[in-house]
């Protein structure tokens, strides 16, 4: 029994000390952002590997999610004779929830895990240490540009996801199932509010981009520099990002859409 408590205490202390390290890491990372802006080349390279390389998976997923919403929405709405509001349903679910959340989950799986593995491997092969010995701060040179790139890419990717999804829903809805195309768009426009829906969705994706990039980079930086350590860190990135995204989504939704 005492052993159990000792174990519990040890692991609690461990997770607090990890949170402390993560916070310190975040502060260092944020303080390095200024120097990244002076060297846009570093940011550009990372926008490529974080953003551009996630583009394909995000667009394809967005298209299919939109088409599925179109199908499902049509079957449900047609029971109430409200097929005309299909556009509203597709767009609201994408812009408010699925766009930010699903694209953030995909982003954590695609870009987040890659970032963790990359940083972890750089640590294991002494590249970070080597940089420090060359009087180059690895946080400024390696971490901050990646963080900023993730932070910028996420809202763009989420917007692409939603936009492509809405078009996908329209292809199915009015192309295949015969919902009036004008009604699809005009109902959407009257029902979706710019600040309530679009801006809130963007805020969500900004928050998710921040948290996912933070987790991915920290897990890599904090990884045990062995192949097993890196593979564990990569798994933790995906799992922790998913939990954080879904948990934060609940909180943000309650804050944003709660008092209507």
């Amino acid at each position: 029994m005492t052993e159990l408590f000792a174990q519990l205490g040890k692991s609690t202390r461990g997770s607090f000390s990890k949170l402390g390290r993560a916070t310190f890491f975040l502060l260092q990372c944020l303080s390095g952002i200024g120097s990244v802006l002076l060297r846009p080349r570093l940011l550009l390279n990372q926008l490529h590997s974080v953003g551009v390389l996630s583009f394909l998976i995000i667009s394809i997923s967005g298209l299919f999610v939109g088409m599925v919403l179109g199908l499902q929405g049509f079957y449900i709405l047609s029971e109430f004779g409200a097929e005309e509001t299909l556009g509203v349903m597709v767009a609201a679910s994408l812009v408010r929830e699925l766009g930010p959340v699903v694209s953030a989950l995909l982003f954590a799986g695609r870009a987040g895990s890659a970032l963790t593995a990359e940083i972890g491997l750089m640590k294991a092969t002494e590249q970070l240490s080597g940089m420090e010995m060359m009087a180059v701060d690895p946080i400024k040179r390696i971490i901050s540009p990646r963080f900023l790139a993730g932070f910028i890419s996420m809202p763009l990717l989420a917007a692409l996801f939603s936009a492509i999804g809405i078009v996908g829903g329209q292809i199915i809805g009015s192309g295949l199932l015969g919902v009036d195309e004008g009604a699809y768009w005009s109902q959407m426009q009257t029902k979706l509010d710019f600040t309530d829906d679009i801006i809130n969705g963007v805020i969500k994706s900004v928050v998710f981009g921040f948290i996912t990039s933070w987790i991915a980079l920290f897990e890599g930086y904090d990884a045990v520099p062995t192949s097993e350590g890196i593979s564990r860190a990569t798994t933790r990135t995906v799992v922790n990002s998913a939990f954080s995204i879904l948990g934060l989504d609940f909180i943000l939704t309650a804050l944003m859409f709660g008092d209507d």
């Binding site: 002494e126 590249q127 240490s129 080597g130 420090e132 010995m133 060359m134 009087a135």
Partner: peptide
């Protein structure tokens, strides 16, 4: 450190 060189075992390239 700019005046100290270090050669890591793995090279650290």
């Amino acid at each position: 450190r700019k005046r100290m060189g270090m050669l890591f075992q793995s090279g650290a390239l």
